Computed example of a mutant assay.
Amino acid sequence: MKNITVIGAGNGGMTAAYHFSKEGHSVCIYDHADFATQIDAINANGGITALAEHHGESMMFSGTEKITKATTNIKEALEFSTILVMICPSFAQEILFKDMLPYLTSEHKLIIMPGNYGGMVLQKMVSDSDKPNLNMVFIDAISIPWACRIVSPGVISIMGIKTFLPMSIFPQELSTPDLQADIQNVFPIPVEFLDDPIHAGLENINFGGHPLLTTLNMGILENFDGKFNYYRDCCSTATANAAAKMDKERLAVGASWGYDLRTELEAMNALYDSNYDTVYEFNRASTTHVKIDSAPASSKNRYITEDVPYLLVPCYELAKAKGIKVPIVESCIHIASAYNDENYFETGRTLEKMGLISQKSNM
């Protein structure tokens, strides 16, 4: 069993800390003092509780687990373990990493869930810092293993779990059988190792299902305050058809960079051990996703503010670098930018921010 530090106490971070502890690991969970609600609840209660039932649906892995340390002190958190699991919105990765950097050593291994090309971005931050010789490992997971929600302070519900989790190790030369075994020992499900962070970013199954369906359904999402099942009610035959066309754009971009990507349907069936014939059927009937009784209520939801700038923009940039047209991806970025009065083409995760091109060559 290992010591593990979880960075971030949102839905995924709380669930990770709970499940790692349930698996017998000793866990520290950290969040910034400005977001200390869950940290305070853990310290008050001595741990995290997972419900057996929520809204009339059966939940998974119920119980109460002790958390060894819950802290708002980043130095304490990084001293607790060399295995770090960062689970936060992509926009917060660089913010948190800046606070972490003074206390990081070459022994630390940072698992980022979801990665969304974060390993390359954070490695560039290291190269540009006053610690350029810091030789740490970045592991980009395509997502988090769980479908989960925080119900109240210190209390979570786990609707489902993936059957395996694809991720990449960066820099690639640091990927060894021993390191892969160490990473596997952290997770309660099998790990699949991909080529690199670009491969992992393009395999994120949130790519089409979140930003496109949210963009296409924004009127009903806002007008009904997200009070329905997102996956079942926002996926129609027409929106699923549009998502399929967008998925072909992603596959073409992957092929141009040398990756043999799973289709969205293949990925969802594999990750959730199902056998649906279409994405429409999956969204309507998945035993995990039908338990999620909520939907985004505005264009400020992470399905737009995270998935557009950190999934669609990199795909658009990777396509542009290879001379490939991705009109649906590009249109979705334009519409989301209009929704939120923000130019995601500029503020999103560009090749320059990933360290793939220099500022000089981009001029």
Results as ranks from 00 to 15, higher is better:
2 K>D: 12
3 N>I: 10
7 I>Q: 03
11 N>S: 00
11 N>T: 01
13 G>W: 00
17 A>Q: 06
19 H>Q: 14
21 S>Y: 02
23 E>I: 08
25 H>G: 08
25 H>D: 03
27 V>A: 09
27 V>G: 10
27 V>M: 11
28 C>G: 06
29 I>S: 12
31 D>F: 03
33 A>P: 13
34 D>R: 15
35 F>V: 12
37 T>F: 10
42 I>W: 04
42 I>C: 00
45 N>C: 02
47 G>K: 07
48 I>M: 03
48 I>W: 00
48 I>S: 02
51 L>T: 04
58 S>K: 15
58 S>I: 15
58 S>A: 15
59 M>N: 03
63 G>P: 09
63 G>M: 14
64 T>Y: 04
65 E>D: 00
65 E>M: 06
72 T>L: 06
74 I>L: 05
76 E>N: 04
84 L>F: 09
87 I>T: 15
89 P>I: 05
93 Q>S: 13
97 F>R: 08
98 K>Y: 13
103 Y>D: 01
107 E>M: 01
109 K>E: 00
109 K>D: 04
110 L>A: 02
113 M>D: 04
115 G>V: 13
122 L>K: 03
122 L>G: 01
123 Q>I: 11
127 S>L: 15
130 D>C: 11
130 D>A: 15
131 K>R: 12
135 N>E: 11
139 I>R: 05
142 I>S: 07
144 I>S: 08
149 R>N: 13
150 I>A: 00
150 I>W: 01
153 P>L: 02
154 G>T: 01
157 S>Y: 06
160 G>M: 01
162 K>V: 00
168 S>N: 06
168 S>A: 06
175 S>M: 13
175 S>E: 15
177 P>S: 07
178 D>G: 07
178 D>R: 13
184 Q>M: 13
185 N>F: 11
186 V>R: 02
187 F>C: 03
189 I>W: 03
189 I>M: 04
192 E>C: 12
195 D>V: 12
196 D>L: 02
198 I>Q: 00
199 H>F: 02
205 I>V: 14
207 F>V: 10
209 G>Q: 10
210 H>L: 03
211 P>N: 04
217 N>H: 06
221 L>P: 01
222 E>Y: 09
223 N>Y: 12
227 K>E: 14
231 Y>W: 09
232 R>G: 05
238 A>T: 13
243 A>P: 09
245 K>N: 11
248 K>G: 09
258 G>Y: 11
261 L>E: 09
261 L>R: 00
262 R>C: 09
262 R>D: 11
265 L>V: 08
266 E>Q: 13
266 E>S: 09
268 M>I: 14
270 A>R: 03
272 Y>Q: 09
280 Y>R: 10
280 Y>I: 12
280 Y>C: 05
282 F>W: 14
284 R>W: 15
286 S>W: 11
289 H>S: 00
290 V>A: 03
291 K>V: 02
292 I>C: 06
293 D>L: 14
294 S>K: 07
301 N>P: 08
303 Y>E: 04
303 Y>G: 01
308 V>R: 10
312 L>Q: 08
321 A>R: 03
323 G>C: 02
328 I>N: 02
328 I>G: 08
331 S>D: 08
333 I>C: 01
339 Y>K: 12
346 E>H: 13
347 T>Y: 11
348 G>V: 10
349 R>K: 11
354 M>C: 15
360 K>Y: 14
361 S>F: 14
362 N>V: 12
